[in-house]
Each structure stands twice: as structure tokens, then as C-alpha cells.
Design a protein around this nucleic acid. Structure first.
Lengths: 133, 133
DNA sequence: CCCGCGCTACGAAGATCTTCGTTGACGCTA
DNA sequence: TAGCGTCAACGAAGATCTTCGTAGCGCGGG
């Protein structure tokens, strides 16, 4: 075996993340799909999106199905996994690795709904109980 | 009035954030101070740190006291404020603006101590009660 | 069979980030 | 006062990110 990629999937840039968001939301999409979804909010040109997605393919952020004339792209990492990565990254770089600090900051600055607060509380319960981990 | 700077303080880059961390930790520091604090963990040269801090001064990320021969730098934004900014940014870019999603992710992936969990719970109480915010 | 349209590929340009070598100024000390 | 060490300033180089213009290809309609 020598096929194991050592490259741990780089951190997506801002523009790349915008594209990933579209892919997660729509599922496998062509460049045109993504372009149309993005051009609504941003003013990027078609070839710009295309180029970015080509680069993302090289980086391993997305995988490409070339069997169709219009290639179909899919996010390689799940949304969850990417969020985890970005979050862990920020936590290390700006919060000294403390998830609690990060969480406290997030909550006090950006209030969540009552329902969401309940969800968080539920998770807390779970964490405290199955503290074994 | 025309003196109001429209520039809202740019998002610090990775290398800049590393420097800011030192400034927050040590308080006002010279380039050498920062360099020594950083070179322990990273292998950056003195002039590299200097250049970065000069750029950060231009960007308004730090302020510089030039009254001494060795200029003394201070972080312009508080650590808290910067954390807030970075967090809000990430929330928008990767979590669809939902702080709850972000928090749930953070907690389930990066467990906090019991004490920290208590703190979070306390904040939740506070948020739910004095919901007036 | 030929044209035009949509799509990918390529390459280049400009911006920003990161790194560092070099230079010149300053002040202490022998 | 001459020399040495420390410091800021500058400029340049290489990497990465972002944006497009342009070219080339293949398919379907006329």
C-alpha cells in the first residue's frame, strides 16, 4: 500500500467555502448550477467559478464526475466534517484551544432561539452524564 | 464630519493572529519581545515579525508607540472583540449564521471540562431568563 | 455536412500574504 | 571618537488567492 494520501485536505478559502455551501445544499452540481446559485448573491463570473472548482478538485476539496459533458462536482468532505475542521482551527488560533471560551463567546454575542438553547442544554446533559469519554 | 474611518479593521491573517495573541498575553511589547515569544513555537525570523507588525500598524490592527527607540506595539482591538469578529465571520461563512449549530458542533467535537460546562449552563440560564438581552 | 452554443481548459494578471536580506540610523562603550 | 550591537525601514521574491479573457472541443439543429 502506498496509496494513502498524506495531504489532510487543506482549509478551504472564503471563495471555496461559498462554493462548498452550494454543493452541500444542492448536492452534486455542475459549474453552471453553482454559478447560478452564487451569482445571485455575489457577482462572480462563470469562468471564475469554473476555475475555482478546478482548483478545488486538485486540492481534493471536491470530486468530479466527468462522464457527462458538463462535469458534475461533489463536495468531498461532509459539511459537518468541514465545519469541525474550521472550528477546531479557529479554536486553536484564536481561543487558545478552549472550546468553552469559544462557545461562551458565540452564545453571548449571537443569541440563539429558545428551541436552540434547549438543544444545547440537552447536549450539555449528555456530555455531563456520559462523561466517561 | 468626514473623519470617520470607514475601514472596519480587517480580519487578521494567521500570522497576524499569532502576533496578536502574544500582544494580548504580554501586553504592550516590542518587536523583539514578540519575536522571542513566537520563535519558541514557530521558526519565523526577526525581520519577518517586524514586517508583519509594520503592516499590522498600517491596517490598524495594532498601535505603535514610537517614543522609545524600540517601538512598543499594542493590540488595537481587544482579544474579546477580535474573537467575536472571527467567530461571527465563521458563523456566517460556514454555519449559515446559526450560532446554535456552531456551538453544538464545537461542544460535541471538543469536550470541555465539567467546570466549563457549568459555566456554559450558567450562561444559558441567563440567556433564557433575562431574555430581554 | 457545417455552424453555433455551451462547456472545459489554459494562462495570465493583479491582489494579498509571508518571508527575509540589506541598509542606514542610533546610542553605548572602550 | 571610532566601533559594535540593536533597531526600524525598505524592497523584493515566492506563494497563494481571485478574477477573467481566450481558445478549443463536442454535440445538436438546420
Amino acid at each position: 500500500m502506498a496509496e494513502k494520501k498524506a495531504t489532510p485536505t487543506p482549509r478551504p478559502t472564503d471563495a471555496e467555502l461559498a462554493i462548498l455551501n452550494v454543493l452541500w445544499q444542492r448536492g452534486p452540481s455542475t459549474v453552471r448550477d453553482v454559478y447560478e446559485a452564487l451569482s445571485a448573491s455575489q457577482g462572480t463570473g462563470y469562468t471564475t467559478v469554473l476555475k475555482l472548482m478546478q482548483i478545488m478538485t486538485e486540492k481534493g476539496l471536491v470530486v468530479r464526475d466527468e462522464s457527462q459533458r458538463a462535469h458534475v462536482y461533489t463536495a468531498k468532505q461532509s459539511e459537518r466534517r468541514t465545519q469541525r475542521q474550521l472550528l477546531g482551527d479557529l479554536m486553536d488560533r484564536a481561543f487558545g484551544g478552549s472550546s468553552a471560551k469559544l462557545v461562551l463567546n458565540a452564545l453571548s454575542d449571537h443569541p440563539a432561539s429558545a428551541q436552540e438553547l434547549r438543544n444545547i442544554r440537552a447536549l450539555l446533559d449528555q456530555l455531563e452524564k456520559g462523561d466517561a469519554r
